[in-house]
Design a protein around this nucleic acid. Structure first.
Lengths: 214, 214
DNA sequence: ACCTGAACACCGTTCAAGT
DNA sequence: ACCTGAACACCGTTCAAGT
């Protein structure tokens, strides 16, 4: 329902880097990151596809900017005083953010952006600090930080695939698995995981936190 | 340097599902999974792009088939007798496979294929069995299985992003981080992780295996 | 049944214009 | 400097032909 205003060649559109990134965020939030395209952003802005190139170098930089804006909104906020609860809260923020936008989380993790300081780096510092405050030595905190981040990321990707549209419904696939006599352990795992998904992440996080002191 | 043989309308190309999947594997191995396209497979086979649709339903099914073939080649093989060494070997196989083809690993994990039995399911059963043989109760083995798989997956994705082509070289970004006084813990982590990457996964796996008995 | 060719609805990106 | 329009080199997929 956007009123398409035609513009002639030299007429300014009032575009800016911030406006382009904001439009990209809206498109990503509305259609999902996999449907984020320069052309869709251009339509959203009422602008030619090629106009965007005057404000960002290309799609990669745009996705980076969207990811960082996303991190700012989802990873920041006041934290509990208790160190272990701080670790838990930060881990849950990262996990929740990933569940909401899997693509953005994978774009973020492990990445060291060109611009400083980014929301992602603030998050990293906060989580490391919380781990050290909880009793971990600094090298041990590095290890635990890596595990927590990888656990979040892995869980998000795994969740994506489980929930991905498939030719056969999930319940039918689990039933078929149960009837497969050669895979008893796998079948029992699938069946027992079906009801209480979501709890799994907390249990895995707990197991990591048990290794906090050393 | 492939000799392009022109064929007229009704002439058989000797295509089959197996041939299509094999060609797709070759393209994925040569150009990477992100460059795998039906059109590239068609060129590789000397065939029209639309010919492929007579042997697979579409791109998704083709990627699934490639992922399963990849799993067969990388996850199968003789295993050590010692249960814990069996867990280690299986985890390393999954990790190595992921480092080689990140996209295929993420396509695989958490997915319950339509066809039985798949190489991925055999792997799942073997890993669960090794965990139980190592002294874990069955529910605990489920938890540890999930952690190991998510750790592999997360590490692979994180590694992808670190090694992704960026506007500024990695070493420069770490240096810039070191000079950022507000992020001392993050900077020290990045610096200390630079030399001994690859060891991180083993240390993380060890921490999980320490929780084997309960 | 098996394959081609034209066509549709998309992509990211470059580059020569225009104001 | 800022934007458009045409163009290039790609995608996945559908569908009416042809043998």
């Amino acid at each position: 329902m956007t009123t398409v205003v035609k513009r002639e060649r030299g007429v300014a559109a009032g575009l800016s880097r911030a406006a382009v990134v904001a439009a990209a965020e809206e498109v990503a939030a509305r259609d999902g990151l996999d449907h984020l395209s320069l052309r869709a952003v251009a339509v959203h802005l009422g602008v030619s596809p090629t106009a965007i190139y005057h404000h960002v170098t290309g799609k990669d930089e745009l996705v980076d900017a969207v990811a960082d804006a996303f991190a700012t909104r989802n990873l920041e906020g006041r934290l509990p005083d208790e160190p272990i609860e701080r670790v838990r809260e930060l881990a849950h923020r990262l996990h929740r953010a990933g569940v909401a936008q899997p693509g953005l989380l994978s774009a973020l993790v492990g990445r060291i952006p060109d611009q400083f300081p980014s929301a992602h780096q603030t998050f990293t510092e906060e989580l490391l600090e919380a781990l050290v405050d909880s009793g971990a030595s600094e090298p041990h905190a590095h290890l635990l930080y890596g595990m927590i981040v990888r656990l979040c990321l892995g869980d998000v990707i795994a969740g994506m695939n489980v929930n991905a549209p498939a030719r056969t419904p999930l319940a039918d696939r689990i039933r078929a698995l149960t009837e497969q006599s050669s895979l008893p352990l796998t079948a029992r795992m699938m069946r027992s995981q079906e009801p209480n998904r979501g709890q799994a992440f907390d249990r895995q996080l707990d197991l990591i936190l048990r290794a906090l002191p050393d």
